[in-house]
Amino acid sequence: MRCLIALVALFVAAHGWAAESEPDEFEENRRVAQAVDELGEPLYSPFIERYVLDELKQLRVDMANVRVELIQQVVDREIDSIDRGVTYATNTITYFFYLIAGVSSILVVVGWTSIRDIKEKMGNLADEEVGKLVDVYEARLRSIEKQLTQKTRHIDANREEIERTQEMHALWLRAGLENSAANKIAIYDQILATKPNDTEALTYKADAVLELGEPQWAINLCHQALSIDKGNAHAFYQLACAHTVLEHYDEAIQYLAEALRFSESYLDEILQEPALQPLAELPAFQELVGERGHDAST
């Protein structure tokens, strides 16, 4: 969401830059930063997110169609190659018969053998050569059929993945619009039923559980997320909030330090989070926030 806001702000600033003739680069950067800082409210809506998701879905569908077209072109070329090979073999055999007929006529004239014997021998030889060609092209056709089957399965798998991704995005949109913590938990459970190792769903579920006054449950969810991703800053942040509710202030400050170690962007949220207010007067908290704030300013 923040990336979307920043992109919109940069887009607005870029339009302002195009209106002037060769502006100073430093002044333009300052104006872009000022436009981002002065944003009063998000410049997005669920409808914009829905539009972006639909565009992504259409892009994936188009890619799948392109793959199908490419496969069809490859198959057509293979079939054309086979047709040319069969035509070549047929012409070769025809000319071969003409040659045999001429040679047989000469041999009959000189009395070497009868036309019937020559015909039988040449027929057997021709059948043998044609059989070899048929076996070769049957093997090629079986290989093409196998490749087509694999491509079809791959396309079906991609289609299912697109549908599953679309469903996941729809659930995240519902969770973002839901105000009830219990309803959010139900939505996160649906996401986890489809994707059990989704650390983002686990940490956001921990946040909703914490709103219901279940800090121990939230702690268990955060540790489950950390078992999947040991560097998940959001899981450390939620652990700090849960331990603060349980009045385990030392553990809370340790988890806040871990969250800031993996992501400095949590500094502002730490200062504004109501659940962390009991830590505000602690020297360790002030030292942690003060050092991070000084590092961020420098």
Rank of each mutant, 00 (worst) to 15 (best):
D76Q: 08
I71W: 01
W112P: 04
V136S: 14
N65F: 05
V130I: 10
M122W: 04
R84M: 10
A89C: 07
E41R: 09
A64K: 08
S114I: 03
L53N: 15
L56M: 15
M63T: 14
D127W: 00
Y95A: 15
L43P: 05
N124W: 00
K132F: 13
I100G: 02
Q58R: 15
L43Y: 00
I100F: 04
Y137T: 04
V86E: 06
Q73T: 12
E78H: 07
Q73A: 11
A89D: 09
A126E: 00
Y98P: 00
R67M: 10
D80R: 08
L59K: 15
L107P: 01
V136F: 14
V109F: 10
T87H: 09
K121T: 14
I106Q: 08
V68L: 12
L99K: 06
D54Q: 14
I115T: 13
L107H: 05
L99Q: 09
K119A: 10
M122E: 05
R60F: 10
I118Y: 05
K57Q: 13
G40T: 08
S105I: 06
V86R: 07
V61Q: 15
F47P: 01
T94Y: 06
A126I: 02
L59T: 13
E78Y: 02
V86P: 03
T113I: 06
D76P: 02
K121Q: 12
E49N: 09
V52L: 15
V130Y: 01
D117T: 10
V130A: 07
I100E: 03
V130D: 02
L56H: 11
G131I: 02
I71R: 04
E41T: 10
G40A: 12
V108A: 03
E128I: 04
F47R: 15
Y51K: 14
D54F: 08
V66H: 11
I106M: 10
T90Y: 05
G85T: 04
S45P: 04
I79L: 08
L53R: 11
V108K: 01
V61A: 15
Q73K: 11
L39Q: 11
E69C: 04
V108N: 02
I48G: 12
D135S: 12
I106K: 08
S81W: 05
V136I: 13
P46R: 05
Y88I: 10
T92P: 01
Q73C: 06
